[in-house]
Structures are given as C-alpha cells and as structure tokens.
C-alpha cells in the first residue's frame, strides 16, 4: 500500500508549469519531510497526493486507486491534509464542534464521535480549549485544532503543511510526539517544513524540491552532505551540522554524536 507519483506533471490552467516529472513512492507508515523554497512546487506536489490537483500528465495512484477518476472529497478518505493557515480550514464555533466535524459528517455513532474527538484533542494537547471559540485562541494553538480535526478521520496518510511555523518549543515537542505516535500507529506522515533542525531531529527520509522538480531523496545526512543540493534548493544545514562540517568532522545531526567525536 502506497502513494505513487509516476512521471507526474502539473500545469496550472493559465499554463504555468508547477511540477515536472515527479516520481515518488511513499509506503504506508513511512514518514517523510518535503523541503525547498517557496515556489519550488512543494504545495502543488502534496495537493496532487490528496486529489486537490489532478496531474496534467502522469499518474497518481493511492493504495491502488488512480486519482484521476475520483473527486477530492473521495480521496480525502485516504489522505488527510492540514492546511498551512488554520483560518482557511476552521469554520465551526467551538473547538469541540470542529474536531467532531468529520465524524459527524460521516455519520459515525455518537460514542465513536466522542471517543475520536477526545483522543485527537489529547494527542494535540488542546483539551482545555474544547469549549472555546477558535477565534479566541492563539494562532499556534489553532494549528493544533486543525490537526486534531483532520486526525479524527484516521487516514492512512496525513499531510502537514508547515506545522512548525510560528510554534514555540512546547509546540514543536508536541509535533514530535505526534509524529512518533503516528508512526507507531502505522500511519504515514508527509510534512512540508522550512525548519531544518526539526527535519534532522524527526525524519529519516527527506525529499528536496526546487524549480518544480524533486532534486534529492534521502536521509538528512545524505542531503546535508551535498552542497549542490543545498544551494539549488536554498536550504541551510541545522546548526550542529554546520558546526561539525566547519570542524571537518562531516555531517553530524545529533549533539551527542558530535560531543563523543571530540
């Protein structure tokens, strides 16, 4: 079971080419980070994975189903997507209603609705906000509300668009815990992010995009070792990695490793 992009091209209706010849396989349960400049085609690429965009050439196959013949809503049962801006996604008057929305819309029974909502709220650490209006809570917490709402669908694949933007230390820790939980639960998480420290700490597989192409696909150590990739995608190494490189010790991701080497 996997998401497969086979020679996928995507062109906007006005003719601009957003993605060219994407080839990617993401197996169920795999956790990957997608990095690159704004405008590199990351968001269009993930929107191809959840059916918001249909490929103009090539095929996108999710668990054996070709996305061409399905509507976005139909594919959303397999691939969940948390938008970068929570205000674009949240539309209920209380956090509880928002988190319960998917379950209610799909007519699950009341007990199931409650249990999923509580489970998602606990995972995202938003239990104390359940009865509050989303417009009254800080932006970074709203992010977790929109994540919780999508989690209740229990999709095998979850896409997070820049979850770390604007988050403080507690927020980033919560995200790490969430990623860990999802992996144990056998669910795949695809994260777009600009935070290289977060990538180094949480991902074993990184896909680098630039100019609409995928230019690299490997472990963080492999990616950060290639200067050409870093400069083409305009990404920077995490601090520890930069330090170890300058000291001539190669690309080290973890602080403990560097300490032991010295």
């Amino acid at each position: 079971m996997s998401i497969e992009l086979q020679h996928v091209h995507f062109r906007y209706p006005d003719g601009t080419l957003a993605n060219e010849d994407l080839n990617l396989v993401i197996h169920e349960g795999e956790r990957i980070a997608i990095v690159g400049q704004n405008g590199a085609g990351k968001t269009t690429a993930v929107k191809l994975m959840n059916g918001l965009h249909k490929p103009t050439e090539g095929e996108v196959i999710i668990n054996g189903i070709n996305t061409r013949n399905k509507s976005t809503a139909q594919i959303s049962g397999m691939v969940g997507y948390v938008f970068q801006n929570p205000d674009d996604q949240i539309f209920k008057n209380t956090v509880r209603d928002e988190v319960e929305f998917w379950s209610r819309y799909n007519k699950l029974d009341e007990k199931e609705i409650q249990s999923r909502a509580e489970w998602a709220a606990k995972l995202c650490d938003i239990e104390k906000y359940l009865d509050i209006n989303p417009y009254e809570i800080p932006y970074s917490t709203k992010k977790f509300v929109s994540i919780a709402a999508v989690l209740t669908a229990r999709n095998p694949y979850l896409i997070l668009d820049e979850p770390t933007a604007g988050q403080d230390v507690a927020g980033v820790e919560c995200l790490s815990k969430l990623l860990h939980y999802m992996e144990q639960d056998g669910k795949s998480v695809i994260t777009i992010t600009h935070d290289m420290e977060f990538v180094a700490d949480n991902f074993k597989r990184v896909v680098v995009m630039a100019h609409g192409h995928i230019i690299a696909d490997g472990t963080p150590a492999e990616i950060f070792a290639e200067e050409s990739i870093l400069s083409e995608a305009k990404i920077k190494k995490p601090q520890i990695c930069e330090l170890s490189t300058r000291l001539g010790l190669g690309n080290i991701m973890k602080i403990e490793t560097l300490v032991n080497k010295l």
């Binding site: 507690a170 995490p238 330090l243 602080i255």
Partner: peptide, 20 residues
C-alpha cells in the same frame, strides 16, 4: 522552562557534562 535556546548552547552544555 521550555524556552528556545540555540543548538550551540545545548551543545556547550553537553560538552560540559561529558567533561570536555
């Protein structure tokens, strides 16, 4: 207290802890 500090500071602490 969950306030962000630079990775180099954490590195420095670890070095101290390792006696270096």
């Amino acid at each position: 207290k969950k306030v962000a500090v630079p990775q180099t500071v954490l590195f420095g602490h670890e070095m101290e802890r390792a006696g270096k």
